[in-house]
Amino acid sequence: MATEANCDGCAFNNAANLKKLGVNVSNVNFVVALAGNPNTGKSTVFNALTGLKQHTGNWPGKTIARMEGGFSYNDKRYKLVDLPGTYSLLSTSEDEEIARNFILFGNPDVTVVVVDATRLERNLNLVLQILEITKRVVVCLNLLDEAKRHHIKVDERVLARELGVPVVGTSARFNKGIDALIKVVHDVATGEIICKPHVLKSISGNIRHAVNRLTSEIEKHFEGITNSRWLAIRLLEGDQSLIEALGDNRIADMVDNQNRVMEKIAV
């Protein structure tokens, strides 16, 4: 379990190690995707990490196109990709497609999911979906200041244990918790923290059976695949772009990459 990732008491001082690189994203060691529901302060987290000044309105769904920025930490250079804010990755709108395809085919080394601490349940919908696509996830529990104002407390340790991935509490508007977030992202990227993500439990009766059958069929064809169940779900939904990806070599490439990363971390 990766609960120790959430080490509130750890003595680390990142400020000296962190360099904001703005739009300079050349020669990066790791790619980090930034996902999250609309209006969770995702762009604020992006700005806090990169030092860029992307405007962030108090509006659900401001970022449509992908924004990129960079930072470096402990001699490693990171490219941060801000994905459109979405409620889900299961629907058909354009912004969801951009986010979904990037997490699936863009091979991010870490995906940070920004979550609104005041509306945890509705945000977990997206987190659980992302955990199906990629194993290397860090949950950024943002808006802690607002949660406090609304008398809501979230137990980060319980959340991390339940999700099987590190959880970092932040108030990005006031630059709080960003250092800890970077440290954890670094640890996940370098393989110091291995995530064991939550597995969906409540899928019911006949659809569970169908999903399981297709999952094992996919695993038979693609050895070492880590997100076979997500593919099974999307194929059963008739995702046209995934059917095409199966036809050309993109799925095979994705699996190769997953295997490579597993080896890298094992070493």
């Binding site: 349940e121 977990l124 919908n125 659980l128």
Partner: peptide, 15 residues
Amino acid sequence: GIYSDASRIAQKAVL
């Protein structure tokens, strides 16, 4: 299904 997992986890984690 996803939402019912989400709601179970949220119940445990939110005080």
